[in-house]
Design a binder for these strands. Structure first.
Lengths: 241, 241
DNA sequence: AAGTGGTCTAGACCACGGC
DNA sequence: CCGTGGTCTAGACCACTTC
């Protein structure tokens, strides 16, 4: 009797999981459909019950399947993606809205000590600063300023960011995988300059969002502050207890 | 040899987890400290390795401990709670700030068709409506109105909500377990009435948050709209890609 | 009653980490 | 080297759902 994780292959429980995932992705199994039971999987894959169980319990934890005591294991309903970190362009695209961006300025700065620190750089680091006004239907609706390490991303200074999403550019061309963002959200009023840029009266309420965006490696990659016209933007999130 | 989950008591793996949790909460174990290994736990609690393992693996999944292959299991760094669904009172308490609530009105309404619908009730359902102004340091900082099914929660109408958190009341006294909330966040300006209630000039920017709060059973339990003074409130969330 | 998931046993081998 | 976690076996009893 062979015991233990012999040969250098994938663990059995992962092989089982992948097989189930593939059947879901290929459409062979749809939401609500029943999945092989622990005992069936154990026979099919010649593993013990505990191993089959491990595979299913893990998939349930991920939300791929749902287990009902006494009834069986079922393919879970497709998840609604709340709270997903998206770039502005991506968000608008997901709502079938078109955006255009006007680059107000693009420059290298080296006196933003606090922002440099938040990006985990030494205080006097050179930063690429990109300031943009985003419009939809030729009407300006948001103002964003983002900062990145000039050393790493200086090449983006002349990139055609009017059309291409900065997120996409980072992920596709710069080999950075974005993972999550910590954000601070509050309300403010438009000052004189923001009023002019967004073509609104001074004092108009704006949603202000300030994000630090981290890569999959845990590196703070980008610092963004944005002002969004009220009425035109609502942020939707889901919070858990 | 006894086998299986005899007698109607708590599962062994949960008893082990609770014991570890208690040692962490009481300060006996701090972040980075090593936790009993699977083999030690198995001996101490007279359970099999798999059971001890289950206890630790589950705690690791929750983020309470961290497991390092070949090294051991360690107490995780204290979590920064992002995106946690908290009542206003709870949030302020977690920041060591005291709040007081003044109940502006508390009544039964039956013409809020849209809100009733959002709570999954028939359009003309009777709803308990509680309007409160929250103050910190005797200065009004937020205005909240919440709606609940009058049929289910009518008894709350005369509850002393000046002092007790509504969340706590629901969870402790009404047997409702809150699970998550879908929220919409945007910015607005104070109108005349809000200006008076919050003692601020008309036109001041306010953060507006509108939540539908769901129970663990998936029932929409409460609808809340709140206005929060800018400068006094920033919402912190983490979003994942 | 039959089948399902939930808990549990008493072991096993392997891969990895720190001394 | 020894101890740790990661994977796995071949069973067991219990609680629950469905028929």
């Amino acid at each position: 009797m062979t015991i233990g994780n012999h040969n250098g292959t994938e663990p059995a429980y992962k092989r089982i999981q992948n097989a189930i995932r593939e059947r879901i992705e290929s459409g062979q199994l749809g939401p609500g459909d029943i999945v092989d039971s622990e005992r069936e999987l154990a026979k099919i894959y010649s593993v013990s019950l505990m191993t089959a169980r491990h595979a299913l319990a893990d998939l349930a934890r991920e939300g791929v399947v749902e287990r009902r005591h006494g009834a069986g294991t079922f393919v879970a309903q497709p998840k609604i993606h709340f709270n997903r970190l998206l770039g502005y362009t991506e968000q608008m695209a997901s709502l079938s809205l078109s955006v255009r961006s006007r680059i107000v300025s693009s420059s290298i700065v080296n006196r933003e000590h606090e922002i440099a620190a938040r990006l985990g750089l030494s205080p006097n680091s050179r930063l690429l600063r990109i300031e943009r006004v985003r419009s939809s239907d030729d009407e300006p609706v948001a103002h964003e300023v983002c900062y990145l390490s000039a050393e790493e991303f200086g090449a983006l200074m002349d990139a055609p960011l009017e059309k291409v999403s900065l997120f996409a550019k980072l992920e596709r061309d710069c080999g950075v995988e974005l993972a999550y963002a910590d954000e601070e959200i509050d309300a403010t009023s438009a000052d004189h300059r923001l009023g002019e840029l967004l073509n609104i009266p001074r004092g108009t309420a704006l949603l202000r969002i300030c994000q630090i965006i981290f890569s999959t490696k845990g590196r703070a990659t980008m610092y963004v502050t944005g002002f969004y016209r009220s009425g035109r933007h609502t942020l939707r999130i889901r919070r858990f207890r």
